[in-house]
Write a protein that binds this DNA or RNA. Structure first.
Lengths: 322, 322
DNA sequence: GAAGGCTGTCGAAGCGCTTCGATGACGTGC
DNA sequence: GCACGTCATCGAAGCGCTTCGACAGCCTTC
């Protein structure tokens, strides 16, 4: 490569990195050679010499109860964002547990890591602390001391749903939530949604009840609500896969929007474009997480919790309380 | 590291790789030091010296019409299989197009690549050929010369559905397929399913018609079939997200299994355990693909097309024709 | 008991980069 | 016109491994 351009290897390196000034004529010659040869620096050599791999790890959950399309959207946005910062993405599953993190960190395979779906008492958090590897968490654990976390402000999202309904005059609302297992493992986003929603309900004097749900039990949940809550006029659904079976079941009981006001949380609206919803901004979250990680890799102190403001989009499924 | 164990660096390397015999006593000492220090070889140094990165790339599709949970299952199984061969997985999306492949190949970032969701006239195939990078395709393009491909035998799967219904005496069957865009881009699996299913129908003298479908149009498809095909007794559905809306729509017309026999292709049965189905063995496909890729990286000639035999599981949704 | 063959280990070279100090070729200021 | 910056480039060292050849010690074999 250096030979083809008639310069020394160090010059090529400086053209590529821009760490020293190079005359425009030389730089052009080097770039032409790069083009002509289809040259790509050897990643291993580069990481050995520079102590940077230009790779970040992404730890994806593989639990049954996570919403897969959302996780995938997220993963793709992380890859896209990483590429725009000249990094690649190594895919880590939980198969190896925290040991996988140790391995890639100790072997200098990655410069940093993005961890998805962090629970309140997540076992990976202490590992990350001890590793000294730059990391950004999606989700917020209990103790965020020294960590960098990004997430949707689920408390605000939960509250926004209640407030929207309260403003429309609803006073009797049900919250159909995640599967029970999600609450049991103390998934941060689920807990915070409930907290925000309960706080807002208290403030607004709205009667609310919480109902964990899965697609298979949606029918029963709906039947139970119709039976036990005759005054119910509002429904908040925080469980994407259950939205369709749930609303179908309500429909069978003659309860349909907008007579029954429905707000969904998640990104199901491309499929059901008439539903009032709070969307999960997966792409923005991925981009933010990667951006923060890049800063952290550069040595900046970016610790702290970034919560994205939720946006509630009002559509046809909510209306003034009857 | 070598110092801690009181041996030379080369000895450590030989203990790790097993490429030369090392006395058990020395080997033990080295392993103890590794353990004690939490030592992990520097990945870059290793790849520079050995010309092996121990990383494979996985190219995932990000089209709207691929079934995301299936893709995810697949991706996870590739990671798991790769780890069992001591490799990691670099996640590539189509964002960069074929250039991403070039980049990771030229930079020696990966030892090989698994490409998902290959179409009959896939643009990545010529790139792969020219790169000389070991690769395994999931899906079968038109010209497989010199390639290694793995897939479910979709033709056999399509045929199996028809044969099962034919054996039960059905003579009037509809095939509800993928969204139109899938056929338009000549996705191999969709074409081959249709081919297998049409061949079997011809051989068995079964009347069949093909109906592309999306979740949003499932209702209309069902209505159309009820209206135009009064003699219809069998339904084959090759479109996971549409299964539920489609069957719901049929139910509204009073057509339910087993009076109407239904066979689904895909892995929706954990959710709907009463449906006769042909499952997509995503995990096995991932494992096979990685296994073949590893052999290819070792220099074996593994070119050829591996088609996994489909298994039809008979359940309650199919019965003798009325 | 000398020649030859194994085994187990070491030393050194080299993988392809980055980075640091050095250096030559220029201007600049007085 | 000489000392002194500045700019552009080079050479060499070194990153932490793998691998190859060498070799010491030991066991066979006639």
């Amino acid at each position: 490569m250096a030979r083809h351009a008639g310069v020394s290897p160090s010059t090529v390196s400086y053209v590529l990195s821009g760490k020293r000034s190079i005359s425009e004529s030389t730089a052009r010659r080097v770039r032409e050679s790069i083009e002509a040869l289809g040259y790509e620096p050897h990643a291993g050599a580069r990481s050995l010499a520079s102590r940077r791999s230009n790779v970040i790890a992404l730890v994806v959950p593989l639990r049954e109860d996570v919403h897969v399309p959302a996780a995938m959207r997220f993963a793709v946005s992380v890859v896209t964002a990483a590429r725009s910062h000249d990094h690649d993405v190594l895919l880590l599953t939980q198969g190896e547990g925290p040991d996988g993190l140790r391995r890639v960190a100790a072997g200098a395979m990655v410069d940093g890591v993005v961890v998805m779906d962090v629970a309140a008492d997540d076992a990976r958090v202490p590992v990350l602390r001890s590793l000294g590897l730059p990391s950004v968490l999606i989700g917020v654990p209990e103790d965020t001391e020294g960590l960098t976390c990004v997430d949707l402000d689920f408390a605000a999202a939960g509250a926004a749903c209640v407030e929207h309904l309260a403003e429309l005059g609803h006073t009797d609302v049900a919250f159909v939530g995640q599967p029970p297992s999600v609450y049991e493992r103390r998934s941060g986003f689920a807990e915070r949604t409930v907290a925000g929603f309960e706080r807002a309900a208290r403030e607004r004097g709205v009667r609310v009840t919480l109902h964990p749900c899965e697609p298979d039990t949606a029918r029963e949940v709906a039947a139970g609500l119709v039976r036990d809550r005759p005054g119910l006029t509002g429904l908040i659904v925080h469980n994407e896969p259950s939205v369709v079976p749930l609303l179908d079941a309500f429909e069978e009981h003659g309860r349909v929007p907008p007579e029954l006001s429905v707000v969904v949380m998640g990104s199901i609206t491309p499929r059901l474009p008439h539903l009032t919803s709070v969307e999960l901004p997966a792409e923005e979250l991925g981009g933010r997480a990667v951006g923060l990680l890049m800063d952290k890799i550069e040595g900046e102190d970016v610790s702290g919790v970034t919560l994205l403001e939720p946006t509630l989009s009002v559509r046809e499924s909510t209306a003034t309380a009857p």
